[in-house]
């Protein structure tokens, strides 16, 4: 079987390792030039999770943690496709998401934000893309929350996304934002990717994906690395 390497990670799109406006990067970002590696089986393979890996309610955050009733907040549908740079759908790809609740509070012991927890909402979900690369989550619109990066700093509403794609090399962890959020222009994490690229992280309101009488729809496509045209010698 021939192995076709992936196009490089596009560092015009991905943030620099050190982005001083996001202060934690200063001591945590790596500093030396990356060492080029000739792709081998180690890079062109990766973990495989099929549809049997996800539970029936894993994709529905409005239901997967209910204790005594539905969670509080604005119910939304988040759907889209996972594609590569050449527009090819990426089927059978695991997506994992996590987020704050409607009040901007995470179910995490490190989150000390004084906002209520919701006993019926954990904020974690997962699903696997279908043959067209499509995924669909039901959740609650996350709230904004303060963070200690700078004075009066607030993170815009966002959902964390983790996905694998075709190999270990295509791994991506990103965040999905919401259209029209005034906090985006003030957020050093969002702005760590330059104009022309950062907008790819902003979902679009979609009336087509809105379920009548039930939930607003947001569309969010994720674009992973494509394949080189030429297979490598094996």
């Amino acid at each position: 079987m021939s192995l076709t390497p992936f196009k490089s990670r596009d560092f015009k799109s991905h943030p620099a390792f050190i982005h001083p406006a996001y202060t934690s990067t200063v001591l945590r970002g790596q500093t030396r030039p990356l060492v080029a590696i000739k792709p081998s089986l180690s890079e062109l393979t990766g973990p495989v999770y099929g549809h049997d890996a996800v539970g029936e309610l894993d994709h529905d955050l409005t239901k997967n943690s209910i204790v005594d009733g539905p969670p509080i907040g604005e119910r939304i549908v988040v759907t889209g496709r996972v594609l590569d740079e050449d527009g090819r759908p990426q089927p059978d790809t695991l997506l994992e998401i996590w987020q704050a609740n409607a009040c901007g509070r995470y179910v995490h012991e490190a989150d000390q934000h004084e906002a209520p927890l919701d006993g019926n909402f954990l904020g974690a979900g997962r699903c696997v893309t279908d043959a067209d690369g499509r995924y669909r989550f039901y959740t609650i619109k996350p709230g904004a929350y303060p963070w200690p990066n700078h004075a009066n700093a607030w993170r815009p509403n966002h959902i964390h996304f983790s996905l694998f794609g075709a190999s270990f090399a295509t791994r991506l962890v990103t965040q999905m934002y919401f259209p029209g959020d005034p906090l985006l222009d003030l957020d050093p994490i969002y702005k760590s990717s330059p104009p022309g690229y950062r907008e790819l992280m902003v979902s679009q309101f979609s009336l087509d994906d809105t379920e009548e009488g039930f939930a607003l729809g947001y569309n969010f496509d994720l674009i992973l690395r494509g394949r080189n045209a030429t297979p490598m010698e094996n």
């Binding site: 799109s13 991905h14 590569d84 989150d111 954990l122 964390h160 965040q175 760590s192 022309g196 790819l200």
Partner: peptide
Amino acid sequence: MALKQTPSQTVGPYFAYGLTPG
């Protein structure tokens, strides 16, 4: 068709209940 790669973002401080809940 050439699309742009979705930018990476930090995993943040609260990944635990999504990625390593057990």
